[in-house]
Design a protein around this nucleic acid. Structure first.
Length: 492
RNA sequence: GGCGGCGUAGCCAAGAGGCCUAAGGCGACGGUUUGCAAAACCGUUAUUCGCCGGUUCGAAUCCGGCCGCCGCCUCCA
């Protein structure tokens, strides 16, 4: 049984078969870089990160392209009518390109912390103006577009399949139009390919139709085609972009090339915060940096980036996800449970007795792997995949209660690394308790206190022993007494 | 107003006609262990799936109505 994906184009789960055997090209709509990434970005890019990771786990050679939108026309849910890049650039006293660069770096920083693998190619819209102009020219030549007053519009009447992705009919759209139609356009459903620049528009380029800037659907078509070909396997994005953005991408691309643009359209659902739509004008707008540091009035503490990731994977990518402090808190606890178990296995592994893997456990590990793959194959059911990982946690902790052969522990660690690490990105390769040159000193320092406390316990001076333990906890070091008088420590 | 989606325990969240007297995580409670803790393990925590009807031998899952929430409805940020 292979991977099945829900294709928005057909509204059904389909067997995934790439165009070229063993190779997958995937394009994901990237961020518009005029502010720090927020929880909504996290859901989007973690979801597609897992798709890419799982495709690679299955052995596909994946080319992952995700654009950076750094050209003018920006959307915002709270405000209307203002160019956000210009506004932000003015506020921060930066050139728009400097602003875009700043937030691009911020974006990658946050995605790295969420353990998202970097795209193979991160093309900037501003770096592909020539290609965008070329596509507009092609569409004009084919009679699918028309020029009016320095702007070029796509003639939707020339593309019969318009509406096939979002399930809309052009007639319904015309009837339901509630926005005033631009006098330049032949039809209300036509959309801009190239816009004449208003004097106040900072980002503008010369074109055969005068100075202007590209329509906002154009960049994705152009960059997807340039790096992945005229027909690409997977195009991902948020549900809010299904219409008009993706619908327009299809129209432009297919009208220009005469071949199917995207074979599988994957859309993820949106996030809410405390049950409400997250909006800049509301006080529930939380950036990733705020979540990681806890610097937001709706948060009671800081959260590990991987805990944020775990909360996202706890639900399905096509379901809406509600972020709340309580939900993040729960994810943080769950994440710690997984990582503590992995750390424990690796610790014991080092000094375990040599020996062959236990047959009974090997069989159970095989079941874990099969269940996990079955869940992921079913349209990336990460919620069930995660529950399987927790099965592995419980199994492991039971195994650790008794002396276990090295090979058994190796097999467990390998499964954690493959499923929890390679696929879900929740298990790290290394968990340094302390880092840097002071590591050894800290180790020895803590051991001094542990020894003092052990002495106190031996003479049954529990007041002194508990005081030492409490003091250490205050500075973030947790002591745990194991059977046989052994005390281990870890960082909080 | 039009189109689409969602509503499952204290919280998050799977399940989409019989395997469900509904996964998993968090929390809470009880137990094992411990000098006490912590961690771990074991057990309990929805006879019920927004509400009301209907279809069916059988519905959380299908249909209709109602209530609540979310997204999109395009010239451009």
């Amino acid at each position: 049984m292979g991977l099945k994906l829900h294709n928005s184009l057909t509204r059904t789960k389909e067997d995934f078969k790439p165009l070229k055997k063993g190779r997958v090209g995937i394009y994901v709509c990237g961020p518009t870089v005029y502010g720090h990434a927020h929880l909504g970005h996290a859901k989007s890019y973690v979801s597609f990160d897992v798709l890419v990771r799982y495709l690679r786990y299955l052995g596909y050679e994946v080319t992952y392209v995700q654009n950076i939108t750094d050209v003018g026309h920006l959307t915002d849910d709270a405000d209307e009518g203002e160019d956000k890049v210009v506004e932000a650039a003015k506020r921060e006293k930066k050139h728009p390109m400097a602003l875009a660069e700043y937030y691009t770096r911020s974006y990658f920083e946050d995605m790295d912390r969420l353990n998202c693998v970097r795209p193979d190619i991160s093309p900037r819209a501003s770096g592909h103006i020539i290609e965008q102009i070329e596509l507009v020219k092609t569409l004009l030549e084919k009679g699918c577009a028309y020029e009016v007053n320095g702007s070029v519009y796509f003639d939707v009447s020339k593309f019969e399949e318009y509406g096939k992705l979002s399930g809309r009919k052009v007639d319904d759209m015309l009837a339901g139009a509630r926005v005033e139609v631009s006098p330049d356009k032949k039809s209300a459903v036509d959309f801009a390919l190239w816009k004449k620049a208003e004097p106040r528009h900072i980002m503008q380029w010369p074109s055969p139709w005068g100075t202007g800037y590209p329509g906002w659907h154009l960049e994705c078509s152009v960059m997807a085609m340039k790096y992945l070909g005229n027909t690409i396997d997977i195009h991902g994005g948020g549900l809010e972009n299904q219409f008009p953005h993706h619908e327009c991408e299809i129209a432009q691309s297919e009208a220009a090339n005469g071949v199917q643009f995207v074979r599988y359209w994957i859309h993820h659902n949106m996030v809410t915060v405390d049950g409400q739509k997250m909006g800049k004008s509301l006080d529930n707008f939380i950036t990733l940096k705020q979540a990681f540091s806890g610097a937001h009035e709706r948060l009671t503490r800081s959260y590990d980036p991987i805990a944020v990731r775990q909360l996202i994977l706890n639900s399905h990518y096509r379901s809406p996800l509600d972020f709340s402090d309580a939900a993040l808190f729960a994810a943080q606890s769950g994440y710690e449970k997984i990582s503590e178990t992995v750390k424990a296995v690796r610790k014991v592994m080092g000094q375990a007795v040599e020996g062959k893997a236990d047959e009974g456990i090997t069989k159970q590990l095989k079941e874990v792997k099969d269940k996990f793959e079955a869940a992921m194959n079913d349209d990336l059911n990460t919620s069930i995949a995660l529950s399987v990982l927790f099965d592995l946690v419980r199994l492991t902790n039971k195994v650790l209660e008794e002396e276990t052969a090295k090979e058994t522990l190796n097999a467990i660690d390998d499964l954690f690394s493959r499923l929890g690490g390679d696929v879900l990105g929740l298990v790290k390769e290394e968990y340094p308790e302390v880092s840097g040159a002071d590591a050894e000193m800290l180790e020895r320092l803590v051991n001094v206190f542990v020894e003092q406390r052990s002495n106190a316990r031996e003479r049954e001076d529990f007041v002194a022993a508990d005081a030492l333990r409490d003091k250490l906890e205050e500075i973030g070091i947790i002591l745990e007494d194991k059977p046989g008088g052994v005390t281990v420590w870890r960082r909080k």
